[in-house]
C-alpha cells in the first residue's frame, strides 16, 4: 500500500448510505456483504472509494475479504489511527 492522502471512514459510510438510503444509519459492525449492501459489482467501486478516502492503494488480488466486511474492519485495516 502507498499513502497519497489522509481521510476518514465517514466518506465510506456516506457512499454506502448514498447507495442504500433506506438502510441508514449503517452500523459499524453490520456485515456489509452478508446484508447485500455490497455485491461483487459494487465492490470494485467500493474499493475505489476506500482508496480515495484512506489515501491507500489496494491490490484486490491480495486482499483479505474480511477486511471489507464491516466499517469497523475497514477502519482498522485502511484508516490507521
Amino acid at each position: 500500500m502507498t499513502s497519497t492522502a489522509p481521510g476518514t471512514i465517514d466518506a465510506v459510510r456516506d457512499w454506502i448510505v448514498g447507495k442504500h438510503p433506506e438502510r441508514s444509519p449503517v452500523d459499524q459492525h453490520i456485515d456489509l456483504i452478508e446484508n447485500r449492501l455490497i455485491d461483487s459489482l459494487s465492490f470494485v467501486e467500493f474499493v475505489f472509494v476506500i482508496e480515495k478516502a484512506s489515501g491507500t492503494s489496494i491490490d484486490v488480488d491480495t486482499v483479505d475479504i474480511d477486511d471489507f466486511r464491516t466499517l469497523s474492519a475497514i477502519e482498522k485495516a485502511f484508516f490507521p489511527a
Binding site: 461483487s40 459489482l41 465492490f43 470494485v44 484486490v60 488480488d61 486482499v63 483479505d64 475479504i65 474480511d66
Partner: peptide, 17 residues
C-alpha cells in the same frame, strides 16, 4: 464475468474482473 466466477466455486476470493 460474474457467471464465470460462479463456476470457480471459490471461498474468500474477490472476483478478478
Amino acid at each position: 464475468k460474474e457467471a464465470v466466477f460462479k463456476v470457480l466455486h471459490t471461498e474468500r476470493e474477490t472476483l478478478p474482473w
